[in-house]
């Protein structure tokens, strides 16, 4: 465990909790893509099946349970509790266009052809693109609430910190996981355009809105 990995995990935690609190406090999930959140729930579910088979550390297990719980709570709030505020009309990205190819790829390119390993690989690939419906929704509506942009920034920062963690681990531990690294690069690149807007607009006190 190095400092980049830890801050990456914490950044991920901040993102998840920020989104949950935003929805809870405003009693609304307007501007949030339910499809992205369902995919994140699917990501955590398929990745953390090893909670039952492979104990790593109390930290690891606790974080997994928190991520899973928060992720399901978010989906519950969007599709059940605050369903009326869900912006379904703007959440039009076709999730099957991501899930099906990613599932196929997980079958073809994995470390080991076993059910758990294929599901883990699927979760890594799916996570890398799961934010697309959310980014697509922002492009479609042309704006995002500031708190939503903080959520996205923390979520993007998490994977960027993981990239530094992987460089660190390669040099100091000789460890690398090519599947995670390639997918992590893709995931981080998807946020670049957003990072630019966040830094040039949101951090200067402006609302994130795109030119019409």
């Amino acid at each position: 465990m190095n400092v980049f990995r830890l801050t990456g995990d914490l950044s991920h935690l901040v993102a998840i909790i920020l989104l949950l609190l935003k929805i809870w406090k405003t009693r609304s999930c307007a501007g949030i893509s339910g499809k992205s959140q369902v995919m994140f729930a699917l990501v955590f579910t398929t990745r953390y099946l090893d909670l039952f088979t492979n104990f790593i550390s109390p930290y690891n297990s606790v974080m997994k349970v928190i991520y899973l719980g928060c992720s399901y709570a978010t989906v519950y709030m969007i599709y059940m509790k605050f369903k009326a505020s869900y912006d379904g009309n703007h959440d039009t990205f076709r999730a099957e266009f991501l899930i099906i190819p990613v599932g196929g790829l997980a079958f073809l390119v994995n470390h080991e052809f076993t059910p758990l390993e294929i599901l883990w690989t699927f979760s890594i690939y799916l996570e890398s693109v799961a934010i697309l419906p959310q980014l697509f929704m922002i492009t479609k509506t042309g704006e995002a609430e500031t708190i939503t942009t903080h959520y996205l920034f923390a979520l993007g920062l998490y994977r960027a910190l993981y990239l530094i963690n992987w460089i660190w681990r390669y040099y100091f531990e000789g460890f690398f996981d090519l599947i995670a690294i390639v997918a992590g690069c893709v995931q981080t690149i998807l946020y670049c355009d957003f990072f630019y807007l966040y830094i040039t607009k949101v951090l200067h006190g402006k609302k994130l809105s795109l030119p019409a």
């Binding site: 690891n60 997994k64 470390h111 883990w120």
Partner: peptide, 10 residues
């Protein structure tokens, strides 16, 4: 050599 199926990251 990396250990397979020992995914210690989150």
């Amino acid at each position: 050599k990396q250990l397979l199926q020992n995914h210690d990251e989150l």
